[in-house]
Amino acid sequence: MSKGKTAVQEIINQVNNMQENCTVDTSLRPQRKCLLCGTPGHYQKKCPGVKEN
C-alpha cells in the first residue's frame, strides 16, 4: 500500500477502536420516575402502588 492509504487505514482503525470503547452504559443515565410514588422503573399509568377501581 502507499503511504496515503496506510495513514487512512490507521485513522479508520483508531475510529473503530474509539467506537468500540465508547458504548453507552444505560445504568449511568438517570431513570424516569413515577409521578405518583417517585420510584424509578415504571410510569404513573402502571404504578403498582395505585389500586384501580
Score class of each variant (00 low, 15 high):
residue 1 M to T: 13
residue 1 M to F: 09
residue 2 S to A: 08
residue 2 S to G: 10
residue 2 S to E: 06
residue 3 K to N: 08
residue 3 K to E: 04
residue 3 K to H: 14
residue 3 K to L: 07
residue 3 K to C: 05
residue 4 G to C: 06
residue 4 G to D: 08
residue 6 T to Q: 11
residue 6 T to R: 08
residue 6 T to M: 10
residue 7 A to D: 06
residue 7 A to W: 03
residue 8 V to E: 12
residue 9 Q to H: 04
residue 10 E to W: 04
residue 10 E to H: 09
residue 10 E to M: 08
residue 11 I to M: 11
residue 12 I to N: 14
residue 12 I to P: 00
residue 12 I to D: 12
residue 12 I to F: 06
residue 12 I to G: 05
residue 12 I to W: 05
residue 13 N to F: 06
residue 13 N to S: 15
residue 13 N to P: 02
residue 14 Q to P: 00
residue 15 V to T: 10
residue 15 V to C: 05
residue 15 V to K: 13
residue 16 N to V: 06
residue 16 N to E: 14
residue 16 N to P: 00
residue 17 N to M: 11
residue 17 N to R: 12
residue 18 M to G: 06
residue 18 M to S: 09
residue 19 Q to Y: 08
residue 19 Q to E: 14
residue 19 Q to P: 00
residue 19 Q to A: 10
residue 19 Q to H: 07
residue 20 E to L: 11
residue 20 E to R: 13
residue 21 N to M: 15
residue 21 N to F: 03
residue 21 N to I: 07
residue 21 N to Q: 15
residue 21 N to P: 02
residue 22 C to G: 10
residue 22 C to L: 09
residue 23 T to H: 11
residue 23 T to I: 15
residue 24 V to Q: 05
residue 25 D to E: 01
residue 26 T to S: 12
residue 26 T to E: 08
residue 27 S to M: 02
residue 27 S to R: 11
residue 27 S to P: 00
residue 27 S to A: 11
residue 28 L to D: 09
residue 29 R to H: 04
residue 30 P to K: 03
residue 30 P to H: 01
residue 31 Q to V: 03
residue 31 Q to T: 07
residue 31 Q to P: 02
residue 31 Q to G: 09
residue 32 R to H: 05
residue 32 R to M: 08
residue 32 R to Y: 06
residue 32 R to E: 13
residue 33 K to P: 02
residue 33 K to T: 12
residue 33 K to E: 07
residue 34 C to T: 01
residue 34 C to P: 01
residue 34 C to V: 01
residue 35 L to P: 00
residue 35 L to S: 08
residue 35 L to H: 09
residue 35 L to M: 05
residue 37 C to Y: 00
residue 38 G to Y: 05
residue 38 G to E: 05
residue 38 G to L: 13
residue 39 T to V: 09
residue 39 T to E: 15
residue 39 T to K: 11
residue 39 T to G: 04
residue 39 T to L: 13
residue 40 P to T: 04
residue 40 P to S: 07
residue 41 G to C: 02
residue 42 H to F: 02
residue 42 H to T: 03
residue 44 Q to H: 04
residue 44 Q to K: 14
residue 45 K to I: 10
residue 45 K to H: 11
residue 45 K to P: 01
residue 46 K to R: 06
residue 46 K to T: 13
residue 46 K to E: 14
residue 47 C to W: 00
residue 47 C to H: 02
residue 48 P to A: 00
residue 48 P to Y: 02
residue 49 G to V: 07
residue 50 V to W: 02
residue 50 V to I: 14
residue 51 K to S: 15
residue 52 E to T: 15
residue 52 E to L: 15
residue 53 N to C: 10
residue 53 N to K: 15
residue 53 N to R: 13
